[in-house]
Design a protein around this nucleic acid. Structure first.
Length: 364
DNA sequence: AACCTAAGCAACCGCCGATTG
DNA sequence: GCAATCGGCGGTTGCTTAGGT
């Protein structure tokens, strides 16, 4: 026989999450770490499916998530990557550490698709986004070639590095991980890897409370509407309010708690972040959330944890598992190049050139 | 002010590969 | 080895809000 069911489908709550549920979930994850989702509903008392819990954590509560408007750079990166990878949102999201695949998918479906359509139907000449697989020309073989060659080289290097790393590692789950704030769960999808996970003393999840605080910020902000609505409607307005609040931040720096906390305080009269800080006993909140640049590999251990947690793979390009912090992820070479701010302009230039679908074959 | 429509987002659904008993 | 479940992913739906008439 197989494993027992994670949760009975009867009595499972659906619909928008309430702040109370969020708090329960964050508290649980803070104590036990992400993963082993099937035990979450039973251990927390949440009447949610394990899948729902995972999704909620991954898409909203996980620290380091940036919400709101996509920057031009992000937009172009998405366009590039979508042209290369297709609708592999998880893979694309791995290059945008602060964005979730769901967010990127929504953004693509609601904004970029339309934008591309418009541009294609309008002027297909000098558009900066004419590089999708739907609208390429053959005028820029050089740049495309450069792009492909570079990708190929990076992928080869990454694969080699991965092999080396695995050889050195002895293909054993790393028991030598630093005790705190070093990814305890590099493979979150595998419950077995979470065994022995002891992150309760780690402040890794600290910025979860920041996320919750932001959620509550919107929630507190809209008491009048919520008071007359059902719980679900209330929660829904919460999420939208939260989004609207966060949408004002268009750069990573804008998403830092140092920027948002005062805002929350000024609007609600309550320092919610502080409240959560005391609630969970979190520390170093500001530091934990200000490292939200495009540099997951070089960021804080926390950043790497949460990147690994939800963006574990890049279509087999060579994401490592069980590495220690000194062993830079092999695929970060490719990633670094893609995310290297110094090269952003060059990449944006590349975005102006068409790609052919064959590029996608590089990843297969 | 009321109604209608479109846009945007959060969450769910279903499938697939991996894992476990 | 088999069957059942888990976790992850992409597609889709449904609800809320904003904008227009």
């Amino acid at each position: 026989m197989g494993r027992p069911p994670c949760c009975d489908k009867v009595g499972v709550k659906k619909g928008p999450w309430t702040p109370e549920e969020d708090i329960m979930l964050v508290t649980y994850v803070q104590e036990h770490g992400p993963g082993n989702w099937r035990s979450v509903p039973t251990n927390t008392g949440l009447r949610r499916c394990s899948k729902s819990c995972r999704l909620r954590w991954t898409n909203y509560l996980r620290p380091g998530i940036k919400r709101g408007n996509f920057t031009d750079q992000e937009e172009k990166m998405i366009i590039q990557l979508q042209a290369l990878l297709g609708n592999k949102w998880a893979a694309i999201a791995s290059y945008l550490p602060e964005r979730t695949d769901n967010d990127i998918k929504n953004f693509w479906n609601t904004h970029l698709k339309k934008k591309l359509k418009k541009l294609q139907s309008g002027s297909s000449d000098n558009s900066t986004i004419s590089s999708t697989k739907n609208g390429f020309s053959s005028s820029s073989a050089i740049s495309k070639g450069q792009w492909e060659r570079r990708l190929q080289t990076d992928i080869k290097t990454a694969k080699q590095a991965l092999q080396d790393a695995l050889t050195l590692d002895g293909s054993k789950p790393s028991p030598v991980l630093p005790d705190s704030c070093t990814s305890p769960d590099l493979n979150p999808g595998k419950p077995g890897n979470n065994n022995g996970l002891s992150s309760s003393s780690c402040t890794t999840y600290a910025s979860s409370c920041e996320n919750i605080a932001r959620l509550l910020q919107g929630w507190v902000k809209t008491p009048s509407s919520s008071s007359v609505k059902s719980e679900q409607s209330k929660s829904s307005s919460t999420q939208h309010s939260f989004y609207n609040a966060a949408a004002t931040a268009t750069t990573p720096a804008d998403c830092t708690s140092s920027d948002e906390t005062p805002s929350a305080e000024s609007k609600t009269g309550i320092d919610l972040t502080e409240a959560f800080e005391s609630l969970f006993g979190f520390q170093s909140l500001v530091e934990s959330s200000t490292s939200s640049e495009f540099s997951p590999a070089s960021g804080s251990p926390e950043a790497s944890i949460f990147q690994d947690e939800s963006k574990p793979d890049l279509v087999g390009v060579g994401v490592q598992e069980h590495q220690n912090p000194q062993q830079i992820p092999p695929f970060s070479m490719l990633e670094k190049w893609l995310l290297d701010e110094g090269a952003i302009q060059a990449k944006l230039d590349l975005a102006n050139f068409p790609f052919e679908e064959e590029s996608a074959s590089l990843f297969q």
